[in-house]
Design a protein around this nucleic acid. Structure first.
Length: 563
RNA sequence: UGGGGCGUAGCCAAGCGGUAAGGCAACGGGUUUUGAUCCCGUGAUCCCUGGUUCGAUCCCAGGCGCCCCAGCCA
């Protein structure tokens, strides 16, 4: 069962889903000795959190059962694939914390073998070369309710098929003029069995084999065979491949393969307020609706990483879901929870003011600067503390002051007293405004006997504010994020762009951030700015202009009460 | 009107014939020098209708609803 505090990847905490039940069964029956899985991305885009589910399942299961998991690039379609994606995918899998078995594998490593298998299929009279055009093939495939018609080229002799197929390889024919097709059943209710295409001609350079080939196998002809070559025992994929399983099995049975892998399907991950399809993510990047694949608003692994989401939080999020065949949509609040749960444990506490309001402590000596001790993590004293400099001029958050506040407002108001975290109790005496009524400065007094924030007479001070002294602040740009989409389920089709959230990224300039945030001495990059949320330093930062990303805000029941 | 898959609380789900786990969200309350964290509490005649059974979320039959498939994409 999933236990409450699923902070690690302890197998005993992973639920026994139907995949693990199947594996338990195969292991105890002796059908297999060790589990071998694979994660088979096509290098045509960046990995997203939906892939993280597949990665977690494949690598996670292998780990648990002391088996193996291969990383295999399913690179059978050079028209869409690029080297940059191969590198990005490797980096993301590693960053998520997984180690693949041996070298990285590529379907293209076996193009010669696949070619031989195709010849074998032709020789056993199970495949034929079809001269029909793509349109003709489509038109004779039939529909969901009507059977298809056999190709006029279906009854060629084995010799003719073999000759033609070799000439396809030799580059004698133009793209689209011929394909190799399996000979199965044009009347099948399963359209994948209506003489599916196995090889197509593509005079396109491949990221790895370059110009060696001008014919490429389809997914269907490659996947199961390579599973067999790699000794995959459980080929785990998403539900939309269920209809391909009969074809997968047909090929595995017809061909002389070193093993007999089996395919099992689970439902893919959907998360509210975002999109998890490579097609739509690519469209966001190409249409410049985001700054790139690693834009912090993107649900890509690279985007989450840049936003400051730790890999462990992603793993915990996935582990808290369980594997099933039900297609649903997980609320993004679940991911948020996993992120906060993890960051709350690890992030160092610091202070920073996003929308600064100047406060002058009138009874504090003009040139005095003192250091007050503030905990780095109140719930975790072993993480230590730091000395924070305090002075006569400090910044507080504009939201933390109301000229005439309601009773339940536990913050600063004219004549009210609050605590500055770790420093002193202060009382607001006077408000300075511009001629048009804008509050620009507060004049306050402090209680010299309240050092550390403790009332000398034990009086109750409900509010505690974060603050930064002007001599200890770094002007910083801070980027705040919201979900990429306004609606929980962006509509299908290209008009999903209409539902982009115009406020998904808000940039604040000249925020006043405690210097210690930019100390490079701490290993853990995650920072909690107290009362504001979790932050990390963005890669766009320069020495002159530091930039923080807000990974996620703290839960906030106050603004909720106000609504 | 073909084939495949799925229907348990707002969301994700356990359950494998013996009388509905857990997590998220929401809502109460307590603690608190982060309105955070933490703690405690609150929710379901299991898509429908029949049937089998002492007993059905679980088995059977028939409905209904949702998703996927007609790429020389994966």
């Amino acid at each position: 069962m999933i236990e409450k505090n699923s902070d690690n990847d302890n197998p005993s905490k992973v639920h026994r889903d139907f995949l693990r039940e199947q594996i338990d069964c195969d292991l105890s029956s002796g059908a297999i000795e060790t589990v071998v899985t694979r994660f088979p991305p096509e290098p045509n885009g960046f990995l997203h959190i939906g892939h993280a589910k597949s990665i977690q399942i494949n690598f996670g299961i292998a780990q648990e059962y002391r088996g193996k998991c291969n990383l295999r690039f399913d690179d059978t379609n050079p028209s869409k694939e690029e080297k940059q994606f191969i590198e990005a995918i490797k980096r993301d899998v590693e960053w998520l914390g997984f180690l693949w078995n041996g070298e990285v594998k590529y379907t293209s490593d076996h193009f010669e073998y696949l070619f031989e298998l195709a010849c074998h299929l032709i020789t056993s009279n199970n495949a034929f070369v079809d001269d029909s055009s793509a349109d003709e093939i489509r038109n004779s495939r039939g529909t969901l309710t009507e059977p298809g018609k056999q190709s006029p080229y279906r009854d060629r002799t084995v010799e003719e098929n073999l000759d033609l197929f070799k000439r396809m390889r030799a580059g004698e024919f133009k793209d689209g003029t011929r394909v190799l097709r399996a000979k199965i059943d044009m009347t099948s209710g399963n359209i994948n069995l209506r003489d599916p295409v196995l090889y197509r001609i593509m005079h396109t350079s491949h990221p790895r084999t370059i110009d060696k080939w001008c014919i490429y196998p389809t997914y269907d002809f490659a996947h199961g065979q390579i599973d067999a070559v790699e000794g995959i025992t459980h080929s785990l994929c998403t539900l939309e491949f269920s209809d391909h399983r009969p074809l997968y099995e047909w090929l595995v049975h017809k061909l002389p393969l070193p093993s007999q892998p089996k395919q099992y399907e689970f439902s893919r991950l959907n998360i509210s307020h975002t999109v998890l399809s490579k097609r739509r993510l690519t469209s966001l990047v190409k249409g410049k609706h985001v700054s790139g694949w690693d834009d912090p608003r993107m649900p890509t692994i690279a985007g989450l990483r840049r936003r400051g989401v730790p890999p462990e939080a992603i793993r915990n999020f996935i582990n808290n879901l369980s594997i099933s065949k039900t297609e649903g949509m997980v609320e993004h609040a679940m991911l948020d929870h996993a992120i906060r749960e993890n960051l709350n444990k690890h992030a160092l506490r610091r202070m920073g003011v996003l929308r600064p309001l100047k406060v002058i402590i009138e009874n504090y000596p003009q040139d005095k600067i003192e250091k007050v001790e503030v905990s780095n993590h109140p719930a975790n004293p072993e993480i230590g503390s730091r000395m924070v400099s305090f002075g006569r001029e400090i910044w507080i958050e504009q939201d933390d002051f109301l000229e005439d506040p309601p009773r339940k407002f536990f913050r600063l108001g004219l004549g009210r007293e609050v605590r500055l975290r770790g420093a002193y109790l202060i009382t607001c005496k006077e408000i300075k405004k511009t001629s048009d009524g804008q509050i620009v400065e507060l004049r306050c007094s402090y209680d010299p006997d309240s050092r550390g924030g403790n009332a000398p007479d034990g009086r109750k001070v409900r509010g505690t504010l974060h603050w930064v002294s002007s001599n200890n602040s770094v002007d910083t740009e801070v980027r705040l994020y919201e979900p990429l989409f306004k609606t929980d389920k962006p509509k299908m089709g290209e008009d999903f762009l209409e539902e982009l959230n115009p406020n998904s990224c808000k940039t604040l300039k000249l925020c006043k951030i405690e210097k210690a945030v930019f100390d490079s001495s701490h290993n853990d990059p995650a920072i909690q700015l107290e009362r504001l949320g979790y932050f990390c330093i963005d890669k766009d930062s320069t020495a002159d202009l530091p930039i923080l990303n807000r990974t996620i805000a703290l839960r906030d029941s106050w603004t909720k009460i106000n609504k």
